[in-house]
């Protein structure tokens, strides 16, 4: 009679190793099939569809070059609107995400509040900002206001999740040192948690701002004003050269924000 526990432990460890390897290969093959099925389902293997792709793109590019900056004087206002949308949306989101993220972080001692905060963040995040935008355009009318509200809602969900993860990785030891000196809970947050999380919080918030500049452009398409509205109008009027000029303008704006973000980040992260 033999039981599993009676078997030679060495043989069982070695058998376990090959079993794990087999399981790994099987998983790899299954994942490969799933990915191939996804491509097939999306019609990506239908080569006939690509026949006219390159010539069409070249024609479009030819039609849109050289870029036409002749209406540049009327772009200042929409550009400022897009910038304002992204700044206000990010600031509102950061302000709302800070308490929600702190609550959602596990190990803060309030499990019910933590689950509730996580549910709120998940909900905010799982509704795309375009959908938020359509809702707010209906609620408060056209212009940058619905855009910034939409960005704020979606970004709160994203930033809150990141903030919670950052807070979960805080080193508890300096806070314990403070508590052993009789310092209050609030003061531990202020003097131990805040200095530890500040660089990463600044980092993810700046990334979110950069993301929101692009998202604000897309929101223009659904009536939230800004440079996105100019871009979609140019496309609708087949003014491809003007559209190209607007794309260059956006590229310059995003690059400038990226450079500003990199500079701010280097100051905080040292």
């Amino acid at each position: 009679m033999s039981f599993a526990a009676d078997r030679d432990p060495m043989a069982s460890v070695l058998a376990d190793g090959s079993r794990r390897a087999l399981r790994g290969y099987a998983g790899f093959i299954a994942a490969g099939f799933a990915i191939a099925a996804a491509f097939a389902y999306a019609d990506a293997f239908n080569l006939a569809r690509y026949r006219d792709a390159l010539p069409t793109i070249l024609v479009l590019l030819g039609d849109s070059l050289p870029p036409d900056f002749s209406r540049w004087q009327s772009w200042g206002r929409p550009l400022a609107e897009t910038l304002a949308m992204s700044i206000c949306g990010t600031v509102l989101a950061a302000a709302a995400a800070a308490p929600l993220g702190a609550l959602a972080a596990s190990g803060t001692g309030f499990p019910v509040a933590s689950h509730a905060a996580r549910l709120v963040l998940n909900t905010l995040r799982s509704i795309p900002d375009l959908v938020w935008g359509i809702m707010f355009v209906a609620a408060v009318g056209f212009g940058p206001l619905p855009g910034l509200l939409a960005l704020a809602c979606h970004s709160t969900g994203m930033l809150g999740k990141f903030y919670a993860e950052i807070i979960e990785h805080v080193d508890a030891a300096p806070g314990e040192a403070l508590r052993s000196h009789g310092v209050s809970r609030l003061a531990v947050l202020r003097f131990s948690v805040l200095p530890q999380i500040l660089p990463r919080v600044v980092d993810v918030t700046l990334y979110r701002w950069e993301h929101n500049i692009r998202a604000a452009t897309v929101l223009g398409v659904i009536g939230a004003g800004g440079i996105g509205l100019e871009l979609i109008t140019a496309f609708h009027l087949f003014a491809y050269r003007e559209a190209m000029a607007l794309i260059f303008l956006l590229l310059a704006l995003v690059t400038a924000i990226n450079m500003l973000g990199a500079w701010l980040r280097s100051r905080f992260l040292q």
Binding site: A173, G182, S184, A187, P195
Partner: peptide, 28 residues
């Protein structure tokens, strides 16, 4: 209390860490 693993905040300066010892003397 002096802790085994220092319990300091690495990115703060030495003097800012020492000031944390006086955190109970100011409003958070």
């Amino acid at each position: 209390t002096v802790f085994q693993d220092h319990a300091l905040i690495g990115r703060l300066s030495a003097i800012d860490n020492v000031l944390l010892g006086l955190a109970d003397q100011r409003h958070p």
